[in-house]
Design a protein around this nucleic acid. Structure first.
Lengths: 222, 222
DNA sequence: TAGGGTTCTTAAGCAAAACTTAAGGTGATG
DNA sequence: CATCACCTTAAGTTTTGCTTAAGAACCCTA
């Protein structure tokens, strides 16, 4: 998430930058309208935070010009101009929200999150502790770092997590993950569990995937 | 455009209904929380306008339950609860906007229009690193140099970039770019990815388009 | 409508990654 | 301390993807 803040008052600008970066939004600042618009038009930002009164170009002009190219990227005004007329002008220029100064940072944050929500498409997700699986995109994250698993690894981990808290017998695993419907035992499962543990860096303290001797495996929140 | 207003105070309710219908929004009123939620869940509305304090069910509860079914339909709170804490609670419950009473009808109207806007439209430009796509003119630029892509190449690149950061499965790509709705696998996608990489001069260091073996491809900022 | 160019698709050979098997090591259990 | 289940590694096999080239389909324009 990259945010562009266009704000000429240094105090507010740095306050915003600091607060936003604490929330893990990568934040750039432009201190005048010309620079602001130029940066915005690079298309590198996921959200714009605009002041109205700016040297060079007003926030309104930035918003309008930006909107002619980028219809979807959210824009939020953050301005001292607080009359109804101004609010309406701001919103009509293409902004998604209009916050009046003085504002509470928490509210700003929440309104940014509202915009983020409506940007993202809903994904099916399942998780186990700090491990997250995105079933649509086949992505795996541990502590927000992406980790690549192969298809079979993913399928196996997925099966275990979907049944978290329940012991999964080896025969069930073979049936559901490998689609083999008769008795079968080479050490395939072991090999894959091993690979998953290695890639996810699961140790004895962090054994989200525990082996149940003689039966199978179990995925467990710790 | 159908709007559902959930508001127990008859004066405000009828004022809203009248105002909204003058603007050609077809408007229904629910005067308590239970009826409000039931109506909302029919899925017949394009936007919800919620009061917070309601007999039966609070606006917050309505919003949360509604959101669990309808992820995208915009919800706007219209309430006398005006502290920051309440505002944040309201927004966190899944609302798209939060307007404090007393409010100006024009501002409400404008904020409704904001929601309508973001329901429609698409960006005309999308980008990935130094690559820029202009969806109107079908032009592609890399480092500001124009590069000619064929239609299919453009469509494929566009699809990947619109989903940047997410792995796109081959089947999804075939479905969305080729419009083929059944299982299909020749190597078409590969050929096109290959062509795009070549034209955009993507090397191992600059692989904006990475292959995810066994699954598909992913467009990534580096 | 014939011809030239462009674009789309298929196929084939090569390269690389993933899958499976097997074998030797490790650790638990009786 | 012997056995059995599990873990790990390495090597062979299979699958998947990349690239190139060639034919088919689709424009334009004359």
């Amino acid at each position: 998430m990259k945010i562009l803040v266009v704000e000429d008052e240094p105090g507010i600008a740095s306050f915003l930058k600091q607060g936003l970066e604490e929330e893990n939004f990568s934040t750039d600042i432009a201190t005048d309208g010309i620079k602001g618009l130029a940066l915005a038009l690079t298309g590198n930002y996921d959200l714009l935070l605009l002041d109205w009164m700016l040297p060079g170009l007003s926030g309104i002009e930035i918003c309008e010009q930006f909107r002619s190219k980028f219809k979807k990227t959210p824009v939020i005004f953050l301005t001292a101009k607080d009359t109804i007329k101004e609010t309406i002008t701001g919103l009509q220029s293409g902004a998604n929200d209009y916050i009046k100064k003085p504002f509470h940072f928490e509210e700003l944050l929440e309104r940014i999150k509202v915009q983020m929500r409506s940007m993202e498409t809903e994904d099916e997700i399942c998780s186990l502790g700090t491990i997250t699986l995105d079933l649509n995109t086949h992505q795996v994250f541990k502590e927000n770092k992406e980790i690549h698993l192969t298809q079979k690894e993913f399928a196996l981990l997925c099966y275990l997590i979907k049944n978290k808290g329940k012991i999964c017998e080896r025969s069930q695993i073979i049936e559901n993950v490998w689609d083999i419907h008769f008795d079968y035992d080479t050490g395939v499962i072991d090999v894959y569990v091993s690979a998953i543990r290695k890639k996810l860096n699961l140790s004895a303290e962090q054994d989200y995937i525990q082996t149940v001797r003689g039966i199978g495996y179990i995925a467990k929140e710790i």
